[in-house]
Write a protein that binds this DNA or RNA. Structure first.
Length: 430
RNA sequence: GGAGACGUGGCCGAGUGGUCGAAGGCACACCCCUGCUAAGGGUGCAUACCGGCAACGGUAUCGAGGGUUCGAAUCCCUUCGUCUCCGCCA
């Protein structure tokens, strides 16, 4: 959601920023609509005031026993009321129109976000870790013998359909170990607040973080009207929905491990093999609520938190600064972490860390009271995966695979696996 | 599923037809007083739109929408939300 005042005051800057998102200029349309809206509000208010005055005078006339005057004013009032209804309807209609229009416009990219129309425009910031050299052809995760023993796509399909999986034995244990490790690290080393939230939310919350109104087809809705969260960003961020918090309580840093649900509506045929892209997956999500002046530093901090997980798991990755055309709608700036998948011989996204500025806060009406005094202002919100658990499982499997079909697991996970360190080719954890 | 209660300003909480944008308290800001990490006194402190350099003024807003009425925070209806009791279930 955008500040209509900002659009009014600097329409060129607004349009220029939209252009970076491959969008046509909209400032003129918005400003014209806003003008109409304000005129309509004024007209409606003037009419209301008139009718109210007539009503007041009529009441007085009646109290004075002046029936003639009462009836005259009453007629006046009735007419005024009819006019008021029409004008108010118009004002409300225009207000809704403007609001709907603004809700559908994505956030404006920060100045340091590179130009670019799509993924190809993203800028690599650094590479961390060195991909292993294999003396055999590395397999994709679903072909590695150690994984095959406990990763049952047929069972997933039987239960639920395509893009579902059943994990058993060592795979389930490893998956759980990963999530636990991430959570512990973020809580104990990074100081985030462990949080458990619902995964079914009201529509209002999906509007707040920007999944709605435009991307409803990407998520699932229950017959009772709840939405299944596509990410815990929705719940963690909306924790401050409608609130005015003290600046002293900022930053608020949350981390949650939840199920995520996505329809993957636009990705039919993509990544159909393996568990890279599922309708249901687990993710450890970080969310920060900050004062405006702190969000840039927080973005770096949060990126560091996500990178620390990959570092600890000894997984090679690269850090990408997304270009304007490839960012999600709510983001001001997004950093992606792409993990090396030897089986695919490529880097794949495993984390996405975004600062959303006041965009979501304005939608949620989430404000803070500045410590220095003054009126409440919108908070800034940030979110980042830390990390996608399923994809992390894939990365650990592909990077740790051995010629004999076994997988050697990173040392930091051993405590979470009862001290064991390897999954054999037959799927045994030893 | 059955029965009921409630929804007021950052928070708590008065207010059952007009003089209420709304008592009082808390929190917050400034000032005064006070020999001290406390208490007391004073003032200010909602949002939106419009006008104004500003001080300030105007209009609207008491979950939302509709209705009754000359007039509604107050009455009626609908809707959303919260809570309580009973039942059921993890």
């Amino acid at each position: 959601m955008h500040d209509i005042r900002m659009i009014r005051e600097t329409p060129e800057a607004f349009d220029a920023a939209l252009a970076r998102r491959n969008l046509a200029p909209m400032a003129d349309t918005i400003i014209a609509l806003d003008m109409d809206r304000r005129r309509a509000i004024m007209a409606a208010e003037a009419a209301t005031a008139e009718a109210n005055q007539a009503a007041k005078d009529a009441g007085r006339a009646r109290a004075n026993g002046d029936d003639a005057e009462f009836n005259r004013l009453r007629t006046l009032m009735t007419e005024g009321k009819a006019r008021t209804a029409t004008l108010t309807d118009r004002a409300r209609d225009l207000d809704t129109q403007l609001n709907d229009l603004l809700l559908g416009i994505p956030n404006l990219p920060a100045a340091d976000v590179p130009d670019g129309a799509n993924e190809a425009g993203n800028v690599e910031q650094k590479r961390t870790g060195t991909p292993r050299t294999f003396d055999f052809a590395p397999l994709e995760h679903f072909d590695i013998p150690a994984a095959r023993a406990g990763m049952d796509f047929a069972a997933g399909a039987k239960l639920s359909g395509s893009r579902f999986v059943v994990l058993t034995g060592a795979m389930a244990r490893l998956h759980r170990a990963l999530a636990q490790f991430m959570l512990d690290t973020h809580v104990d080393k990074h100081g985030l607040t462990e949080t458990i939230t619902p995964v079914l939310v009201r529509e209002e919350m999906m509007l707040g973080t920007g999944q709605l109104p435009k991307f409803g087809e990407d998520s699932y809705q229950t017959t009772t009207g709840w939405w299944l969260i596509p990410t815990a960003e929705v719940t963690l961020t909306n924790l401050v929905h409608g609130d005015v918090v003290d600046e002293a309580t900022l930053p608020r840093r949350h981390v949650a491990h939840t199920q995520c649900f996505r329809s993957e509506a636009g990705s039919a045929g993509r990544d159909t093999s393996g568990m890279l892209r599922q309708h249901q997956f687990e993710k450890v999500e970080m969310v920060s609520i900050t004062a405006p002046q702190d969000s840039d530093a927080e973005h770096l901090r949060m990126t560091g938190c996500a990178e620390a997980i990959l570092d600890a798991l000894e997984l090679p990755y690269r850090t990408m600064l997304l270009c304007a055309g490839d960012m999600g709608a709510s983001a001001v700036r997004t950093t992606d972490l792409e993990v090396w998948l030897p089986g695919q011989d490529t880097y794949r996204e495993i984390s996405s860390i975004s600062t959303c500025g006041a965009y979501q806060a304005r939608r949620m009406n989430a404000r803070y009271k500045p410590a220095a005094g003054g009126k409440p202002e919108f908070v800034h919100t940030l979110n980042g995966s830390g990390l996608a658990v399923g994809r992390c499982l894939i990365a650990v499997l592909e990077n740790g695979q051995q010629a004999d079909g076994s997988v050697v697991l990173p040392a930091v996970l051993h405590p979470y696996l009862g001290g064991r360190s390897t999954i054999t080719a037959t799927g045994e954890l030893i």
